[in-house]
Design a protein around this nucleic acid. Structure first.
Lengths: 239, 239
DNA sequence: CACTATCAAATTGAATTCAATCTGAGGCAA
DNA sequence: TTGCCTCAGATTGAATTCAATTTGATAGTG
């Protein structure tokens, strides 16, 4: 029955998502993009004040982030942005590898022609980035590619798990600073990935993606075993 | 008989873990073992009353469980125990497969002799269970085996992710009711698993475990495509 | 000087209170 | 009857309040 549509005052009305969810999203973003550094203390009163909410929904958000591993909660002490040890990083890489392998297997079966086109385009972009030595652009196109694969897998749970772990890695400010050599190698790997997607070789793509991530891991380990760098504590604190 | 000077120790002592954590654990357990059925409504006041706490920590626990996918929160309506569609089940199985494959790869490299002994013992137990047609005992030994593998992988993040997804499956009351034939097949697979663990064939074990899970998935799909069974709503509600 | 004990201020944990929204039973008109 | 409307009670969402614990500064002691 058609009744006169109610007004939907989009900005006067309390958003349709709950407070704690928006807070969790916002904080997660701040952690992932580095505005909140690993180890940084999170003072409930301060953050609540900054977001103009009470501590109640903020604490709910912190609990969720703690469950995701983004923050550490110590009883009666506060919440801190999680700071991963090198071992944690390696663990996370392995899990990401397994998940990305599965994503590849599924994507090879399910990717659409449109999505394949996007991947091809991103492939070109990565090559250009390599030619012009534009690392940032390469990283961007690289991540976009993996994102398409993840989407093409059509498995929401996989997406959630992947993004969760990938967020942890991003928060750790891990940056695979490529040698020119490894960069070229990665490009080759991406060619294979695209080819296998086009050929819809599910199992092989899974293997290649697992290997791809393993390579990244190896280079990470090699780099880290020399320099044990820690994020300067207190940086990015809320106070 | 002496009168108790204090309340029962269990609820008087300020436990080391926070309230919301214990609540989340308790509720998760209730969901996983079926005391709370999929789709069951969770009334905050009732549950809070039952656990003798205020709604505040309970709501925190519910948020965490929602993030894990164990409950669904609808704004201003209540929380319900998540009820997975068949598609969700398939998705979860695939993710579990990927994670278990990784666990196998790592376990093959890291399992201790003691742990191997445990696996051997459980192997015997599974065989006996098969001989005596004791399904419950088989399931138990089977899960214990996978648990050892997961432990032997020495990757806490992997463990967390695995348990999270595996909890979802358990909550869905999925039960691989084995035909005698598939049961025998599964036993064979377990022999291979043990052998590869002993031989420390990492990659092969990964493949076998992924295949093992895929087989389970296939049998699930085959069974489900005939009968679309839904849990009776309202069963196991808190009210 | 190093080390410990102490205690007020700061901070977190949880209960209570208040506000917003939903649900469902009954009334009413077609 | 059937369908819609209304409104009170139930329920959830968030703020506030109160209690418990930690922290850090300070003073005292060997």
């Amino acid at each position: 029955m058609r009744h006169e549509a109610k007004r939907t005052p989009t900005d006067a009305v309390p958003s349709r998502t709950s407070m704690h969810e928006r807070l969790a999203d916002e904080l997660r973003e701040m952690i992932v993009d580095g505005r909140l550094a690993p180890g940084a203390r999170i003072n409930e009163a301060e953050v609540a004040e900054r977001f103009s909410v009470s501590r109640t929904p903020l604490r709910e958000a912190l609990k969720v982030l703690a469950a995701e591993g983004m923050v550490e909660l110590r009883p009666h002490s506060g919440a801190r942005v999680a700071s991963l040890t090198t071992a944690d990083l390696v663990d996370a890489f392995r899990v990401i590898g397994a998940l990305e392998g599965l994503a590849g297997e599924l994507a090879a079966q399910r990717i659409t022609e449109d999505e394949l086109d996007e991947v091809r385009h991103l492939q070109d972009e990565m090559n250009e980035a390599f030619a012009t030595n534009d690392l940032a652009r390469y990283f961007h196109a690289n991540q976009a590619t993996h994102d398409i694969i993840l989407t093409a897998a059509r498995n929401p749970l996989l997406q959630k798990q992947y993004r969760s772990v990938s967020g942890l890695l991003a928060a750790a400010r891990f940056r695979a600073n490529l040698s020119r050599e490894r960069w070229a190698h990665a490009l080759k790997e991406h060619e294979v990935i695209l080819a296998l997607l086009e050929l819809r070789q599910s199992a092989q793509l899974g293997d290649v993606l697992r290997a791809h991530l393993n390579n990244k891991l190896e280079s990470l380990v090699r780099r880290t075993e020399a320099s044990t760098e820690n994020a300067p504590p207190g940086k990015g604190d809320f106070r």
